[in-house]
């Protein structure tokens, strides 16, 4: 109980959650607040016509597109993070708990996968699938996280696998899955939440980056990543077309990273 209370009082958690929540609300409720439609042409391209953020490369309203452009990217980031966490944690905890040659084999395989920077994984898939659907992006961003999550999860699990309380559970004949679920599980929650926060930060960076490179799932649709690419040419005359989505992304990553960092330091303290 007091662990949760301690977390709620940490300023990093408070500020981080506030920022994150703000951006998420912007993404979810944005379409309801937008003064114009997602594809409405409200003026000439790259001018200050339209609402106060001006118009984009087609003359669409930048503010409206920022308000429309959060849902897809936020949802994809969250799904990709969840996928990467599930696959990575399963893999890593399995390796740690199995130990011996199984661990060795799993981790060597993991090392090979780690040799691919995440952006390279994305580009390799994009070279084969030119026009990815949104779930393809979720799939490969998530899978690109998995080996990195696996390494962290294994490390965290290892510190507990060797504790005597696991030996004690084995000595009374507790089933293996039960040991993982009831003895290891509760100890892994906070450190893995910290990792999830970090992964969410990277997910949005990566997915926005894919949009920035011009490989978005739905060309033309409002999307924070894609908008930076569309409006790059107008950076000199109408910077808000690029700056507005970029600032929202920056804000979101700062928020999630604050939460991840606070959770991480709490996990480190709880260990002693």
């Amino acid at each position: 109980m007091n662990r949760l209370a301690g977390l709620a009082r940490d300023p990093k958690i408070v500020i981080g959650s506030a920022i994150t929540l703000l951006v998420v609300l912007l993404g979810v409720l944005g379409p309801l607040l937008a003064p114009h439609g997602e594809f409405d042409i409200v003026g000439r391209p790259f001018t200050h016509e339209g609402s106060f953020l001006g118009t984009d490369y087609l003359g669409q309203d930048v503010l409206s597109r920022v308000l429309y452009g959060g849902r897809s990217i936020l949802l994809m980031s969250i799904l990709a993070t969840a996928l990467g966490m599930v696959v990575g944690v399963t893999y890593g905890v399995l390796a740690a708990y199995a130990g011996g040659w199984v661990d060795e084999l799993l981790m060597r395989t993991n090392d090979v996968l780690l040799a691919f920077p995440q952006i390279l994984v994305a580009l390799l898939v994009l070279s084969a699938v030119r026009q990815p659907s949104w779930w393809v992006i979720v799939l490969f961003v998530g899978l690109a996280h998995a080996p990195r999550v696996a390494r962290v999860a294994r490390g965290v699990a290892l510190t507990y696998v060797r504790r005597d309380f696991v030996a004690a559970a084995q000595a009374v004949g507790e089933k293996r899955w039960r040991i993982v679920a009831t003895e290891l599980g509760p100890n892994l929650v906070v450190p893995l939440l910290a990792e999830a926060g970090l992964r969410l930060t990277y997910s949005i960076g990566l997915i926005a980056g894919i949009g920035f490179l011009g490989f978005a799932a739905d060309p033309g649709a409002a999307d924070w990543g894609q908008m930076t690419n569309e409006n790059r040419l107008g950076l000199l005359v109408q910077p808000w077309g690029v700056l507005a989505p970029v600032l929202v992304i920056a804000l979101f990553t700062i928020g999630t990273n604050l939460i991840a960092d606070a959770l991480g330091s709490h996990a480190a303290q709880g260990d002693s």
Partner: peptide
């Protein structure tokens, strides 16, 4: 450092460009 640690590199880059070479 904490605030900067999670910001995607192209976001930082765009911000630097708009600060130092354009507007």
């Amino acid at each position: 450092t904490l605030a900067l640690a999670g910001v995607p590199e192209f976001v930082t880059g765009i911000l630097l460009v708009s600060l130092l070479s354009t507007s």
